[in-house]
């Protein structure tokens, strides 16, 4: 089971500012360990952010995103007390969903 991510969502003018810090190795598949063996690729491929059942962001990532990925963006139409959900799926089919209440 993947580690939880930190999600924050806060009203910022007429938008909601979402920040997510995910916990993931983001292995490229090009590194080797100290025995010279290739470390298999393992990275987040899909990120989906939803608000009241509506997708407010859909992203696809490759191996160039840094380990423990950070993402920040804004959307309109959210209000205090509502929930924002952030979900990812990685190249091994692992997934993780976390949420935050908009403050």
């Amino acid at each position: 089971m993947a580690n939880p991510m930190k999600v924050r969502a806060a009203v910022d003018g007429d938008t909601v500012l979402v920040k997510a810090l995910m916990s993931h190795v983001m292995e490229t598949g090009r590194r080797t360990n100290d025995k010279g063996e290739t470390i298999p690729a393992h990275f987040i491929q899909q990120v989906t952010v939803t608000h009241k059942g509506r997708v407010v962001l859909s992203a696809q990532w490759g191996t160039s995103i840094s380990a423990n990925p950070f993402l920040s963006f804004r959307f309109r139409g959210g209000a205090k007390g509502e929930t924002v959900k952030v979900a990812w799926v990685d190249s091994k089919g692992d997934s993780r969903t976390d949420e935050a209440i908009i403050t």
Partner: peptide, 30 residues
Amino acid sequence: VLVEKNPNVLAAVFEVPEGTVADFQTRVKM
């Protein structure tokens, strides 16, 4: 976002639905 000299050039694609601001922050490897 594309990093020209990385082994795979494309780092991320963000689909921007109506109502979402086309303005993102993230971190990449180079």
